[in-house]
Structure formats: structure tokens, C-alpha cells
Amino acid sequence: MAEVHETAASLRFHGDDLDPEEISRVLGAQPTRCRKKGGIWITPSGKEKIARTGSWNFAAKKEPPCDLDKQINRIFSDLSDDINAWKVIASRYRGNIFVGLFLSSLNEGLTLSPTTLSAIGSRGLVLGFDIYSGDGKE
């Protein structure tokens, strides 16, 4: 089994009453992207949209080859290490580590270390994946 070609990872929180400034203050960093419910945001194609819910995103640099452990741990190292603060935020808002897996061929895979899995769980976060298929050519 070959390694996944490329990965992207981000920390995301969502909630109708989410205040991005509060999360930034508690976690100790500014988000990559955020919005309050009802706020206007611009899509990559330039279209204006109204946010249906509040969100706070903090993305790791997307990089090949795959090193998902490194990306997730980089996110956590840039933010507060106060686990109780994380649990409070995670109990109030829907929080996750969101991962994009970009395959270049069939049958690629990856693993995560117990340390990384523990760091995600201890913060009360869900781990989610979107998998983007390769072209199937070897």
C-alpha cells in the first residue's frame, strides 16, 4: 500500500452562537478563516453569501507527501495546551479535526500515531475525513 499522496488538515468549530473572538482568545491564535452567523462572506469565485452558522477554522499547511501526524500536531502546537479550555469550547460548539485525503492512485493509505489520536480525543474533538479519489491509473 502506497502512502496517501497529499493531506490537508484543519481545526474547525461551528455553532449558531459562535463568537470567533472568544475562540481566538481561549485558544491563543487568530483563525485562518472565521465568520459569525448572518455575516457576509465571499466565496473563492467572488460570490457573496450569508453565513448560516458561525465558524472558526485554523488550517495547517497543505503539503505532499502525506504527514498527517505532523499537520495535526502543528495545529495543536500553535494553540493553547489548556485541555480544560479545549473541553469547554468543544462542549459549546461542534469541533473537529477535518482532514482531506488526496489520492493519486488506488490503494493508498496512512496511519495516525496513538499520541495524535489521544491529542484529538482529549480535546473533545471528532476526526473527520473527505477522501478525494485518484484517477485509478497506476
Rank of each mutant, 00 (worst) to 15 (best):
M1R: 11
M1L: 14
M1F: 14
E3Y: 10
E3P: 08
E3K: 15
V4L: 12
H5K: 13
E6N: 12
T7Y: 07
T7A: 14
T7W: 06
L11F: 14
R12V: 12
R12F: 05
F13A: 06
F13Y: 15
F13G: 04
G15D: 03
D16C: 01
D16G: 09
D16N: 10
L18H: 04
L18V: 05
D19G: 03
E21P: 01
E22D: 03
E22K: 05
E22N: 00
I23P: 03
S24T: 07
R25K: 12
L27G: 04
P31Y: 00
T32K: 05
C34S: 14
C34T: 02
C34Q: 09
C34Y: 04
R35W: 04
R35C: 03
K36D: 00
K37T: 13
G38K: 05
G38W: 05
I40K: 10
I40Y: 02
W41M: 01
I42P: 00
T43N: 00
P44S: 07
S45Y: 03
I50N: 02
I50M: 06
A51N: 07
R52D: 09
T53E: 09
G54M: 00
G54C: 04
G54N: 02
S55D: 02
N57T: 10
F58Q: 03
F58E: 01
A59W: 01
A60Y: 06
K61E: 13
P64T: 08
P65C: 05
D69T: 06
K70G: 09
K70H: 15
Q71D: 11
I72L: 06
R74I: 05
R74T: 15
R74M: 04
I75Y: 14
F76D: 03
F76K: 05
S77L: 06
S80D: 10
S80T: 15
I83A: 09
I83R: 14
N84G: 03
A85R: 15
A85V: 06
I89Q: 07
I89G: 01
S91G: 14
R92Q: 11
R92I: 01
G95E: 11
N96C: 13
N96K: 14
F98P: 02
V99Y: 04
L101E: 14
L103K: 11
E108M: 09
E108G: 10
L110V: 06
T111D: 08
L112N: 09
L112R: 11
T116Y: 11
L117R: 12
S118T: 12
G121V: 09
R123Y: 13
G124L: 10
L127E: 10
L127H: 13
L127P: 04
G128Q: 15
F129R: 09
S133C: 13
S133W: 11
S133T: 12
D135R: 14
D135G: 15
K137V: 15
E138R: 14
E138D: 13
